[in-house]
């Protein structure tokens, strides 16, 4: 099947000539208007990213993709910075590696990255020792976290490093929100907002280290504007948002992605005809996604396509993929 990726970049008003720049000592020609990240990747250079996703407006908040541009006072985020003629770029200089290392250490010392794909390798590659900031502090209760106002905070205790550890939010049957794993990449907010779904059920709330993804008044998702399309789940890079079957299988130690068969099919619910990738483990659909590199869906589905597969599951399997519900 052919799939094309629609680049999310500003359409060029006039056709501009290609741009020549130097990346890591090599002269590279890039289309005008593309980002440094795109130019680097086209040149075969790997730049680590976390908040960036091709289908979303670059938030450039994680700062993992920073590169050094000669003449710039500070490092620049390659995911959103456009190429300019004559730029001299270093993607792996000591300054760049230092910033990436610290960003990774900051995240690893404050957020649970255990389900972030590729993170373990990155932490090794950049020689990270997040424990050098001290032992992780005890998780906070939901009420404690909600009570963190803006402004003066309690002085830090000298024995621990603050974290965002907190209980899992499980307020609906379709997906869970484990904000202890949230790196605040803004992807879910963008997917819920103008980039994809236009539901605006969630936004950033609070400020600084207490900033968080929240519904209005911190109400549960059933009382919010959420339509359960799960497009936030699809874009979450860390597993903070996770469909219930995957969450429960992981909790039971039974999540085995290497054994899963992924089959692309067309969603049967309506006439739009979205491509759905069904992830099957032990003959049970354990997850449904849509390819990001698809011109129509760009990874998006609706509540039915993403979560409505119980009717094609063997009866026993439905129970086994949802142990929590089965136990009730």
């Amino acid at each position: 099947m052919t799939a094309t990726l629609i680049p999310i970049t500003r359409p060029a008003r006039t056709s501009r000539p290609p741009v020549a720049l130097t990346i890591d000592g090599r002269t590279v020609t890039a289309e005008a208007g593309v980002t440094l990240l795109a130019a680097c990747r086209a040149a075969g250079l790997e730049i680590p990213t976390l908040c960036f996703l091709e289908t979303l407006t670059p938030a450039n908040v994680c700062r993992l993709c920073v590169v050094e541009v000669e003449g710039a006072r500070v490092l620049v985020p390659s995911c959103s910075r456009e190429v300019e003629a004559g730029m001299v770029v270093h993607t792996n200089s000591p300054r760049v590696r230092h910033a990436r290392r610290l960003v990774l250490e900051f995240l690893a010392s404050s957020v649970d990255l255990s389900t972030t794909p590729g993170m373990a390798e990155l932490l090794v590659e950049y020689g990270c020792h997040p424990e050098r900031f001290g032992a992780s502090a005890e998780p906070q209760s939901t009420a404690e976290r909600a009570a963190v106002g803006v402004g003066h905070h309690e002085p830090p205790d000298t024995a621990h490093a603050a974290t965002v550890a907190q209980p899992v939010l499980r307020d609906n049957e379709l997906f869970v929100r484990d904000y202890a794993k949230c790196v605040l990449c803004y992807r879910c907010v963008q997917a819920c907002g103008v980039d994809h779904q236009n539901s605006f059920a969630i936004a950033l709330a609070g400020r600084g280290f207490a900033a968080r993804i929240s519904t209005e008044l911190s109400v549960g998702l059933p009382d919010s504007a959420c339509v359960y399309c799960g497009n936030c789940v699809a874009v979450c890079p860390t597993g903070a948002l996770m469909a219930v079957p995957e969450f429960d299988l992981r909790a039971a130690g039974a999540w085995r992605p290497e054994e899963q068969a992924v089959t692309d099919t067309i969603c049967p619910y309506c006439g739009v005809g979205c491509t759905v990738s069904l992830h099957v483990q032990d003959n049970v659909i354990v997850k449904a996604t849509s390819p990001f590199a698809h011109g129509i869906t760009q990874g998006n589905l609706c509540i039915k396509g993403r979560f409505g597969w119980q009717h094609v599951q063997p009866e026993a399997a439905t129970a086994s993929t949802a142990p929590a519900r089965a136990a009730e």
Binding site: L107, H153, G208, A211
Partner: peptide, 18 residues
């Protein structure tokens, strides 16, 4: 700086705490 960081980017949000 910890109080006044907007919390948007990782280096400032966590760096000011550390």
């Amino acid at each position: 700086f910890r109080d006044e960081s907007c919390g948007q980017c990782v280096p400032c949000r966590v760096g000011t705490v550390r």
